[in-house]
Design a protein around this nucleic acid. Sequence first.
DNA 1: TAAATGCTTATCCATTTGGTTAAGTTATTA
DNA 2: TAATAACTTAACCAAATGGATAAGCATTTA
Lengths: 107, 107
Amino acid sequence: MDKHLHHTFHALGDATRLAVVEQLLKGPASVSELAGPHDMALPAFTKHLRVLEGAGLISSQKKGRVRTCFIQAPTMRDLQGWFAQRQRMWEARLDNLAAYVEDNGKG
Amino acid sequence: MDKHLHHTFHALGDATRLAVVEQLLKGPASVSELAGPHDMALPAFTKHLRVLEGAGLISSQKKGRVRTCFIQAPTMRDLQGWFAQRQRMWEARLDNLAAYVEDNGKG
DNA sequence: TAAATGCTTATCCATTTGGTTAAGTTATTA
DNA sequence: TAATAACTTAACCAAATGGATAAGCATTTA
């Protein structure tokens, strides 16, 4: 359902959702297992899950009355790939500010 | 100024701000150079710059009437490091959903 | 020194976000 | 079959977000 990278970053840009991703990296978990550590009512929490699922960061499957959630490896890989492809660009100038000052005389 | 990772992700979770980061990866630029491609008034745009600066993703320096912006390499490195440290966790289950189905009988 | 350039500050506004409570619905369990 | 467990849906709300416009302020340039 995701298309643009900034949607994926947006989904990670919340403490609750980032914690859920960290937890799911350890393995699948049900909605209530995931909700446990977070001090908020379930409806608020499941909204966060929908944001993560909408961004393609997690997926889920309902069996009986339990919904089990998983990390979506391909999306994590895409994010990592984005940084990997750009790493040389930011390392190229080491410390950008210092490089700028040097290029322009330290005035 | 940043402390928690989700703040950094939040800063990247907007199309305009992500585009600014991409542009700065190519090298330093002034506020108006950065604003050029974006169809919005300057005050709205500079708010985005302040969010990026607050998250430690960019820094800036004013000389005369021109403010020059730079990428902050250490923060980019931190983000990449976060993914690098977790890569094994998501690759461990390849496709999480498939793994779950296998572990539980394909009912 | 007058005008233009490159921001910056202040105020405002509609929409989105992150939360709430109340009331279902669909499995399990006693 | 009655109760409980695990969500789900709906309606609501305060605060944050992303935008606008108007006006101001240094710094160059003519």
